[in-house]
Design a protein around this nucleic acid. Sequence first.
DNA 1: AAAAAAACAGGCAGTCTGTATGTATCCTTT
DNA 2: AAAGGATACATACAGACTGCCTGTTTTTTT
Lengths: 202, 202
Amino acid sequence: MNADRRTQAERSAATRQALITAGRRLFGELGYAEVSTVAITHAAGVSRGAMYHQFTDKRDLFEAVVEDVEHDLVGRISSAVSKSGFTDPIDNLVVGCLAWLDASTEPEVQRIALLDAPAVLGWDRWREIELRHTIGRLEASLSAAAKAGRIRTQPIRPLALVIVGALDEAALYIARFGRTPEEERNVRSVIEQLISGLATEA
Amino acid sequence: MNADRRTQAERSAATRQALITAGRRLFGELGYAEVSTVAITHAAGVSRGAMYHQFTDKRDLFEAVVEDVEHDLVGRISSAVSKSGFTDPIDNLVVGCLAWLDASTEPEVQRIALLDAPAVLGWDRWREIELRHTIGRLEASLSAAAKAGRIRTQPIRPLALVIVGALDEAALYIARFGRTPEEERNVRSVIEQLISGLATEA
DNA sequence: AAAAAAACAGGCAGTCTGTATGTATCCTTT
DNA sequence: AAAGGATACATACAGACTGCCTGTTTTTTT
C-alpha cells in the first residue's frame, strides 16, 4: 500500500501548504482572533498535532500566511508594472502604487495584511516582512526615481513607509466608502497628487 | 458605617474609571491579547463581576480605553496649536500634525491606538471613534485651509485619512529608528513636504 | 420601611492554546 | 535489506481565559 508513498519533504510541504491555504481563507474571512486552530486544521484536513509540528504556534502559522499574501501582492504589482510598459521611473511608481491600492482593496488582504498583521506580529516583525516584499519593491522604485533625478532626494526608507501608510489607509477607505466610481476617483486623485508632489518641479 | 456612602452614579464612575486607568496601562504595556480580564480587575482593585456589569465584554472596555486615549490626544494637539499662536491655516495644520506625530511616538499610544485598535475594534468602529476626536479636528483644519484657499480644493475626508495614515506610519518609524536627531529630522521633513505639497502653489 | 433597582462578588461551564506522550512513515547506514 | 534513527503525525491532557449565572450588598423609590 505505498500508493501514497511520499518523501518527507513532500509530506511537509503538502501539510504546510494545506494549512497556509486554509489559514489564509479563514483568517481573511474572520480575523486572527476569531479563528481557532481546530477550525484551521479541520479545514486543511490535517490534525492539530501536524500543525504544531510544522509551526511553533498559531502566530507562526499566521506569519506564514502573511508571507504568502505579501508574495502574491508583489507578483501582482510587478506584473501590472511590466504590463504597463512604461519606462519612466515616475510612471512606474504611479502604476505600482495604484496596483497596490487595487490589491489592498480586497477584504482578505485588508484583514490579514493591514489590520491583523501589525497587532499579531508586532510592528517590527510586520515591517521586516513587508520590507522583504512590497515595501522593498517600493524602495527600489523610489531609489530609481531619485537616481534619475525625478524626485527630490530625501531619505528613502521613511519616505517609503509614509507612502505605504497613505496607500493602506486609502485602500481601507475605498473598500468602505469608495464603492462609487466618483469616490474612487477622489481617492486616486489624492494619491496621485501626493506622489506627484514628490516629483521635482519641472 | 456609612463613611463610604456614595451615590450609584459615583460608584459606577469610580469603578469605570479604575478599570479604564488600569486597562490603559496594561493594554498599552502588553497589548490587548496579552492582558487578561483578571489582570485588569486585579490592578483596578475591582472584581470581575463588577467589570462585566459596567462593560459588556473585554472588547467594550478596550473601546472605552481607546476613547480615553483619543480624548487626551485631542487635548494635547489643541493645546499645542493654541500655544503656537499662529493664525495662518497652513501653520496651524503643520503644528497640529507635528503635535500628533509627537504624541503618537509614545509606546502606549502606539500599542493601543495604532496597532491594537484597528484589529480589535475593526476598521469601521475604529475610524468612527477617531472621526469624533483626532481626525475630526484634522478635517476641521483642512476645511478651514481649503476655505481660505490655502490648499487645493479636494475631498476632505479621504485627504484627512491619507494624511493620518502617513502620520501614524511616521510615528511608528520614529519610535523604532528615529531616535537620533538626524533621523527624526528626516521624517519631519518628509511630512512637511507632504503637507506643503497640498498647498496651492504660490 | 418595604420594595425595587442598581452595583457587585464569586463560582461555573465551555472553549482554546500549547504540550507531552505515543505511533507511523521515511531515511540512512551497514 | 534490515536495523536504527529521524522525521512527520495523532491524540489526550493541563492550564488559562472569557462570558454567564446566581446570589448578596448597597442605593433609590414609593
